[in-house]
Amino acid sequence: MSGPVPMVVGLTIIWVLLWGSVSPTIVVGGVLAAVLVVTVFPFPTAPWTFVIRPWPTLVLAARFFWDLARASVEVSWFALRPAGPPPSAILRVGLRTRSELVMTITSELVCLVPGSLLVELEPEEGAIYLHVMDAHTPERVAAFHQSVLDQEERVVKAFAPREERDAVCSQEVAP
């Protein structure tokens, strides 16, 4: 399937799910609404190329869930401890990739972990700006910066084409 057909099918399914029941009227209404949306708001074709490597994807998922659990405990401790909240900071992280897909996946995985929030993504600069909740020492900031670069590397190893993977994994970026 190519073109707008997958988008129409997907939007129709969402429409039916939102209505909570299936009837010919709801399905036809969903198809008409989806065709209208796809016609009025055409989506640009994305020039993204990616592959899925099973082992690096498993490593990426396992590390993401570990980070999620660890950060949830840390954020819970910050909320419950008697001291006030730790100082926070806005941090610019220069990514090594220029692929918008890889930058987006990296940003989303970083921000889904409690304790950080995406402020801005600059694909032209290859940088993301993040709000970091725990920035009470330069070492914590440096560790967070490195964790973002490590996450980027895991995403690249899991999804980037071979040429990009080799180029990104051989680079070093200073904070």
Rank of each mutant, 00 (worst) to 15 (best):
T12L: 00
W15P: 02
W15R: 09
W15E: 08
L18W: 15
W19S: 05
S23D: 10
I26W: 00
V27P: 01
V27Q: 02
V27L: 03
V28P: 01
G29S: 11
G30S: 12
V31K: 01
L32H: 03
L32V: 12
A33H: 01
A34T: 03
A34F: 00
V35T: 00
L36H: 06
V37W: 11
V37E: 12
V37H: 10
V38E: 05
V38Y: 00
T39P: 08
T39H: 08
V40C: 06
V40P: 02
F41P: 00
F41Y: 10
P42H: 08
F43Y: 13
P44V: 03
T45C: 09
T45P: 04
A46K: 12
A46N: 09
P47V: 04
W48K: 07
T49R: 13
T49V: 13
F50P: 02
V51G: 07
V51P: 02
I52V: 14
R53H: 04
R53K: 14
P54M: 02
W55V: 15
T57N: 03
L58Q: 04
V59T: 07
L60T: 02
A62H: 04
F64S: 01
F65N: 05
F65R: 05
W66D: 03
D67K: 09
L68N: 05
L68W: 07
S72C: 04
V75G: 07
S76G: 15
S76H: 03
S76D: 06
S76Y: 07
W77K: 09
A79S: 10
L80P: 07
P82S: 11
A83P: 06
A83D: 11
G84S: 06
P85S: 09
P85C: 02
P85K: 10
P86E: 06
P87K: 14
S88E: 08
S88N: 14
A89G: 06
A89Q: 03
A89T: 13
A89C: 11
L91S: 02
R92A: 13
V93A: 03
G94A: 15
L95I: 08
R96K: 15
R96G: 14
R96F: 08
T97M: 09
T97D: 07
T97L: 08
S99Q: 07
E100I: 13
V102Y: 06
V102S: 00
M103V: 13
T104L: 10
I105G: 01
T106Y: 00
L112S: 15
L112H: 13
V113H: 02
P114L: 04
P114R: 05
G115S: 07
S116F: 10
L117H: 08
L117E: 12
L117C: 13
L118M: 09
E120M: 11
E122Q: 14
E122I: 06
P123F: 08
E125H: 14
G126T: 04
G126M: 04
A127H: 10
A127M: 10
Y129I: 10
Y129P: 03
Y129S: 11
L130A: 06
L130V: 14
V132T: 00
V132D: 01
M133N: 02
H136E: 13
T137K: 00
E139Y: 11
E139F: 07
V141M: 05
A143P: 01
Q146R: 15
Q146F: 09
S147F: 02
S147C: 06
L149R: 12
